[in-house]
Design a binder for these strands. Structure first.
Lengths: 220, 220
DNA sequence: GACCTGGTTGAACACGCGTGCAATCATCGG
DNA sequence: CCGATGATTGCACGCGTGTTCAACCAGGTC
């Protein structure tokens, strides 16, 4: 049969390959073999390069698709520092987007330009969120708001990535929601504590750093 | 010539291969090819497997060597959360151990058992350090000290790893000290701020979490 | 000098990878 | 009915990988 045009809900072959690739990358890392994706999708490897030009083409296509999808459902799921209550609420909806979440995690794990872009967007969103919260009075203002936003995002995402299995180890997509939930629950109390009650009992360290900083600023 | 036994300071071939491998892994990631290491060391690939049995053998040998070396110089360099002042002081000594630092970072990036072990050790050390600091009165006690120690380590190491180039991108070992220094300087102010002055202005989020936690504990 | 031991090498192998190519098949427009 | 079109496949190529193996060569020992 030719391209299953509009049969009740089933996708075109291109879309099926794309979805399979996303799930494979999420499960086995970005270095998953083209043949593995093909076999998982029930097609030949040649067909994939016929549809996407090359392996890199498929990668780029999936990147764009997932990124657009994530931004559409403007979610801060990956950033526990931005909104703890939002995370709790959204953890129920995660199951539907497990492949997306897994794909993004794997992408970040692999690094590269797309990971940097995604991180930057996350930092921007967190920055705006923090600024609003500061104006609302729920978050304390910072001497370096941009650096603070980046630090918070890198803390959260970095810790999450550390929890992820190695780049070529398998990650079961069915258990990903439970896995994520267990991790956030283990982290929630220390994080809330850290964000509510200062870790250090006095400001001597901060004061010392601020004074040497000021000294080196006036006397370069 | 046979094995350069004890000529003025030059190492045995095994040791030379080991050191080269460590530097190669630090520079190009754990997936660096055996032939690349061999060529960098000026020997043949066969000689490496003759000395270490296999590629995995070389990897294991380097892991053990670097880990022992790091633990010998009991340094908390990788854990800014544990001691900010110690980090500042030690950043001058880092240049000598750049390959070691790079190797550990690449190992953590690659995940696996050795990375988990190293992280666990780091968590243990941080736990002890925090307990001592709590008893000394400089650090506030926690409701979950073990989880807090792990969270702090995962934050710091995770953020550092996020800054690292991708698993197969190159990392110049000569610029690593400066690279590390620039990163910590960008992070130092937000981190000290976060650890000294609470991010959140009130404890409503923490209180809410604690109450639902208590409720689910008494009524399972 | 013969013999053994062990460091050292280059060639070859098997494997998995992405890719290119020719062929097949189903469907549609004329 | 018939070429055109495009989806789809199997095969083979080149490349890079880790590993294997036979050979070579330098000393030390009898």
């Amino acid at each position: 049969m030719r391209s299953a045009k509009a049969g009740s809900g089933d996708l075109t072959t291109r879309a099926r390959i794309r979805d399979t690739a996303i799930r494979c990358v999420a499960a086995d890392g970005v270095d998953v073999s083209l043949r593995a994706i093909a076999s998982e999708c029930g097609v030949s490897a040649s067909l994939i390069v016929h549809h996407f030009g090359s392996r890199a083409g498929l990668r780029a296509h999936c990147d764009r698709y997932v990124l657009d999808g994530i931004r559409e459902r403007k979610t801060a799921t990956l950033d526990p520092g931005a909104g703890a209550e939002a995370l709790l609420e959204q953890s129920a909806h995660i199951e539907r987007y497990a492949p997306f979440v897994g794909y993004v995690l794997r992408s970040l794990q692999a690094g590269g330009a797309s990971a940097t872009d995604f991180l930057d967007h996350l930092v921007d969103d967190t920055y705006d969120y923090l600024e609003k919260a500061v104006r609302a009075g729920t978050v304390r203002p910072s001497r370096a708001p941009a650096d603070r936003a980046r630090a918070l995002v890198e803390f959260s995402v970095g810790a999450l990535l550390l929890q992820l299995p190695g780049p070529d180890e398998h990650l079961d997509l069915d258990t990903l929601p439970a896995w994520l939930r267990a991790y956030t629950e283990r982290l929630m109390l220390p994080m809330l504590e850290l964000y509510t009650e200062p870790l250090l009992t006095d400001s001597s360290l901060l004061d010392a750093y601020l004074s040497v900083r000021e000294a080196s600023a006036t006397r370069p």
